[in-house]
């Protein structure tokens, strides 16, 4: 959608027009729901995060100053909401207990690369909460460890350690899935 069309929809949303809001929702909801699924451990959590995020998007849309950054702005809302969600449920309070993961060399063969995105999504959802947040924030969103530490309220070292463990865990889970397929 071009900038003018988006501008019209956003203006309509700000005026409270429900049709414009529905159009806005239809435009961005699929992307936001995908992000929610990546940060959530199951469909129920993902939809809760998504719903809260959409309400926030509409609630704070008037604060958006640069329309060009609307996708990133909404994505940040989803990310923040996901972090808030898991902090609220206190599931982030666990010790780093994945140090004992098998450190054997795990290679990412072409077989894995052919996995469907839904299967990869399931693998990510199987990760423990903090690992899932860290791998999303670092590997997919591109945040630095310092930023992740600030966002999650953990130390930089813990962030690095969680990323390391998450990578190993992902490879193990992907191996298992591929074995099942073969």
């Amino acid at each position: 959608m071009d900038k003018t069309g988006l501008d019209i929809i956003v203006s309509g949303c700000l005026q409270g027009d429900i049709q414009h809001k529905k159009a806005f929702y239809g435009l961005f909801a699929p992307h936001l729901l995908s992000v929610s699924y990546r940060y959530a451990k199951n469909k129920i959590d993902a939809e809760d995060i998504f719903q809260e995020s959409v309400l926030k998007v509409f609630g704070y849309l008037h604060q958006l100053k640069e329309l060009e950054k609307i996708e990133w702005w909404m994505k940040r809302i989803v990310i923040n909401e996901a972090i808030r969600f898991y902090k609220k449920n206190r599931s982030l309070v666990f010790i780093e207990d994945y140090q004992t993961l098998n450190a054997a060399e795990l290679e990412l063969s072409d077989v894995y690369k052919k996995m469907e995105v839904d299967e990869v999504l399931k693998v990510i959802q199987e990760l423990p909460d903090r690992m899932r947040l860290v791998i999303n924030l670092f590997s997919i969103e591109g945040f630095s460890h310092e930023e992740i530490a600030e966002m999650l309220g953990i130390s930089v070292g813990t962030s690095k350690s969680n990323l390391f463990d998450a990578r190993k865990k992902i490879k193990i889970l992907m191996q298992e899935k591929v074995r099942r397929i073969i």
């Binding site: 699929p30 995908s34 998504f50 894995y112 995105v117 590997s139 997919i140």
Partner: peptide, 20 residues
């Protein structure tokens, strides 16, 4: 390998959508 995995994940979810 890690960079490879990061790229793999990033590419997989690039433009990924789920219709609500």
């Amino acid at each position: 390998l890690h960079d490879d995995l990061d790229d793999f994940l990033k590419n997989k979810f690039e433009g990924h959508t789920i219709v609500p």
